[in-house]
Write a protein that binds this DNA or RNA. Sequence first.
RNA 1: GGUUCCUUCGUCUAGUGGUUAGGAUGCAGCCCUUUCACGGCUGAGACACGGGUUCAAGUCCCGUAGGAAUCACCA
Length: 474
Amino acid sequence: MADTSQKVVTRFAPSPTGFLHIGGARTALFNWLFAKHHGGEFRLRIEDTDRKRSTQEATQAIFDGMEWLGLTSDKEPIFQYARRSRHAEVAEELLKSGHAYHCYCSKEELAEMRDEARKNGSPVSYNGKWRDKSPSEAPKDIKPTVRFKAPKEGQTVIHDLVQGDVITQNDHLDDMILLRADGSPTYMLSVVIDDYDMEISHVIRGDDHLVNAARQAQLIKAIGWELPAYAHIPLIHGADGAKLSKRHGALGVDAYQKMGYLPEAVKNYILRLGWSHGDDEIISEKQAIEWFDTDGLGKSPSRFDFAKLENLNGHYIRDVLSNEELLKTIKPALEKLLGKEINPKEEILLLSSLDEFKTRSKNINDLAASPLFLFAQRPLSIIPKAEKLLNDDAKIIMGKLHNSLSSLNNWTKEDLEQAVKDLSEKENLKLGKLLQPVRAALTGSNVSPSVFEIFIWLGKQETLNRMGDYSSFE
RNA sequence: GGUUCCUUCGUCUAGUGGUUAGGAUGCAGCCCUUUCACGGCUGAGACACGGGUUCAAGUCCCGUAGGAAUCACCA
């Protein structure tokens, strides 16, 4: 259980070098839920200190993704690059207090050290060449980097809320660069300072940062600050168990939106990847806030499974969202397919027919397309599978049904059912045999909601017209 | 290669020394039924392996194997 006697402040700190992928979305969700659960604050920080790789588009994609998921920052987002002078200032202090030093090694020299270290199985790649040299030996024509003078003895322990105590021997960690030769701060320095200045109490992030946590802890101790609490969550892998890549599942959240997944379903799905609350599967946001804590976090990595996401999406479509909400989300797509705006009369029809369509759709793109036949112009085009249903015999029978229905005074479900039943008995035909061709004529497909519902939705005139288009009259 | 982490049905997971190892999803079958869904029921399916500790181990310890992360003047 996390210690939350202090005010809880969490953050999500992505670097704007690409879209907001599903792993990042989960990290953001966990931080957000943890803060909400403890009545604390959730903040967003854009780690854009790498000027070469950071882009405005990526920053916008992150904002958009967060908004789509409903994960809002409680304060204005922080841009790390804007705080670079503060970072440099702390590095200067470290230099003064003897916790940091100038290093004049060239990149080539460093690469050599790495190769050497790897060959010898040495745990550190930088050998500390400039660690104890006196400033008088410094070359005049080279701009130095500033390195952290890391402790050489003892060990650093991270009391991780997920992983337990993670012990790192200090002599396994080399002296990391704090300030680049151009004076810009590196990630290791920036995170530590920003987390402190933002008063972050709990750092929940991917366990790819677990090794970094030890280095950051050393730095924090050298500066003389308190450590935040850490929770390093296992990564999400692709369906084949390998690290998520663009080929399998590492899509931006916008891709999930385009595929027709609801943010509610995506959130519910990723919540259950690496976190659990007993056997609970379907968890509303309200419930998630109430239940979420670090003790429900698992230690093993998980794989992304579209089948389960799809199932959850279907659940949110048919059992959670109201028809009004559903119509609102499918409206843009539907109008685009229709090539026109939906009028109020059509809206009423959609609202009442959505109950039938929503049990048949796993994503909102399918849902948007499913009522299209209601608005189709005659004569309907028929898909091949339905075409087979409209053989000569079927057309004759449909002609008979057409005659019988056209004489109906009341266009109600009861009367329609009675009329269909009467004809099926008279002709000694199974209901399916009689109705499948009708379905084809009315919808152009072999699959649809109940034809009796469709009779009502279409109304008498349109029903008879559509049937008539594919009937033979004797 | 060094370091660190992980390992329960295909997948997500429950499980904290004594359970017929539970749920979800997916899969198969049956029922419902005018098609397809939805819904209901049934079924197959897991403690990576080897040693310990213990009366008793999925649960604790040690190995082995497999997987992952990381080792940048990236974050």
